[in-house]
Write a protein that binds this DNA or RNA. Structure first.
Length: 482
RNA sequence: GUCCCCGUCGUCUAGCCCGGCCCAGGACAUCAGGUUUUCAUCCUGAAGACAGGGGUUCAAAUCCCCUCGGGGACACCA
């Protein structure tokens, strides 16, 4: 029997969750869900200077919003707690000591300046910039001298001089020639573990079976592989995902505008739309159907359909997905999603009719935030017909007459429902013997003051009899004033 | 600079592993028509790509090589 799949997402809390990170999390989550495995969340906060708790909180909340729940991790705990690297320092120490016992780890007293100077020198000589191993064989006298100078030290791992072969699910077999990497730091001088060391320890301890991550990590993998071999641990399966680039083809960064998941939430995107858009970056559905619900994605997701080339996040397409998902949401659900986006001035009677109003605007909505403008335009008490709209009615010889007949027909309605309103429209059509735009435009203008917009007879129901009649009278008034 | 990854319509991609069904299919965006007695929706259509060059082969988007282009790593960042 094969082992149960355990994937993880291991963000560093040095910024908000951005689309690249979310995509990585998503693939790990989907893969775990698809195989009935577990998804672990781990916080890699070993960058003492840049990590901040508010980022951890933001990441957690963004993940939750996207509906990616984790089986183990912060807040939920689990058998391998704590899931935060800054709280696992003792464990790293323990592993470093075992490496020291094997003599494959040594203290390095080099300062930042020295290391940087070394790199500069190598570059100018057109050599690969990498650590020379100068502290590898320090004798006691030298160590004593450094100690007396008050220098701090970091631990470096002495890499074996041999090629590394990474078997990657997405990229295939990748060979790295020897001599490409220098001895790297496993524990920083502040006592915190360095990335390449901490991931190995944690992924092993947490029994991670599959590591799905951005392919910017591919060239780090040999280092990690060396460590796995040194420690006698079985490495996970690696699957390096193609990167998501900015619209200019460059690595995603702050200046690319909206890259935070949070900002999409604020703009009125639905989490399922973001997920739908994200999953198609570097992966494709087996049947070619692109708009999918989360459950369908879980069902469809396999590693074999991951592609290998980088992609860009297309804002227009996310909007398309949003409009599609918006349409398939039940009115009740949509009403609840809309809550944070409702205009403050919304009337209580309209609030009561929210679901009805939603149906009026449904096809027009692309973002949740579009609702309030639509509401203001068609439900506002400040009703002021557009000039161009009035002109059109004026230019129609029957215009005013249509509206007057329409008004009379509406006045006679007791129960102001869609059937009766439609009836009134039909009656008006017969009375004035008009059809098409000539008939409908004046009525539309009379009710909405505009030439375009949502289907106006559906809109009339939640607008209510009184507001409709008032508006029609206003329009008639303004027509006469001309 | 060295090493690694990648290169199909403007964008996301299918096809590539196992060459022929691909003078390359779909989606978004764009443009043009049409349906809907109004509007929105929707439908139909158009335009639009195998980075370039060599090979191998009866046959190459698919296999091999080179070039070019993009990205990544070479950090006491992850």
């Amino acid at each position: 029997m094969t082992k149960k799949v355990r994937t993880r997402f291991a963000p560093s809390p040095t910024g908000n969750l951005h689309v690249g990170g979310a995509r990585t999390a998503l693939f790990n989550w989907l893969y775990a869900k698809n195989t009935g495995g577990e998804f672990i969340l781990r916080i890699e906060d070993t960058d003492f200077d840049r990590s901040a708790e508010r980022f951890t909180n933001q990441i957690l909340s963004a993940l939750s919003w996207l509906s990616m729940d984790w089986d183990e991790g912060p807040e939920v705990g689990g058998p391998h707690a704590p899931y935060q690297q800054s709280q696992r320092l003792e464990r790293y120490q323990e592993v470093v000591e075992s490496l020291m016992d094997k003599g494959v780890v040594y203290p390095c007293y080099c300062t930042d300046e020295e290391l940087q100077a070394e790199r500069e020198r190598q570059k100018s000589r057109r050599e690969p910039p990498r650590y020379s191993g100068r502290c590898r064989n320090l004798d006691n006298a030298e160590i004593k001298k450094f100690e007396e100078q008050g220098r701090s030290f970091a631990y470096r791992y002495q890499i074996p001089d041999k090629p590394a072969t990474v078997e990657d699910v997405a990229k295939g077999t990748v060979n790295f020639p020897p001599d490409q990497v220098g001895d790297f730091i496993v524990v920083k001088s502040n006592g915190y573990p360095a990335y390449n060391f901490a991931v190995v320890v944690d992924d092993h301890d947490m029994e991670i079976t599959d590591v799905l991550r951005g392919d910017d990590h591919l060239s780090n993998t040999p280092r990690q592989l060396y460590l796995y071999e040194e420690l006698g641990w079985e490495p996970p399966r690696w699957c390096h995902l193609p990167m998501i680039l900015g619209d200019d083809g460059e690595r995603l960064s702050k200046r690319h505008g909206a890259t935070d998941v949070e900002s999409y939430r604020e703009q009125g995107f639905l989490p399922e739309a973001i997920i739908n858009a994200l999953v198609l970056l570097g992966w494709s559905t087996p049947d070619g159907v692109e708009v999918k619900k989360i459950g369908e994605l879980i069902n469809d997701f396999t590693l074999s359909r991951i592609n290998r080339s980088a992609s860009r996040f297309d804002y227009d397409k996310v909007k398309y997905f949003n409009s599609q998902h918006l349409r398939s949401l039940p009115a009740e659900e949509l009403a609840s999603r809309l809550q944070p986006f409702l205009p403050e001035e919304m009337l209580s009677e309209d609030l009561d009719n929210l679901e009805q109003i939603i149906e009026v605007f449904r096809e027009q909505l692309v973002l949740l935030s579009d609702f309030s403008e639509l509401y203001r335009e068609y439900f506002s008490n400040q009703f002021s017909p557009q000039k161009s709209a009035l002109e059109l009615v004026n230019n129609n010889p029957q215009g005013a007459k249509i509206i007057r007949e329409f008004l009379t027909n509406l006045e006679g309605i007791d129960d102001f429902n869609l059937t009766n309103i439609t009836e009134a429209i039909k009656n008006t059509a017969q009375q004035v013997d008009q059809k098409g735009a000539k008939l409908y435009k004046p009525m539309r203008v009379a009710v909405t003051g505009q030439l375009e917009g949502p289907e106006f007879h559906t809109l009339m129901v939640p607008l209510g009899k009184k507001r409709c009649l008032d508006r029609i009278q206003t329009v008639l008034q303004e027509l006469e004033d001309d």
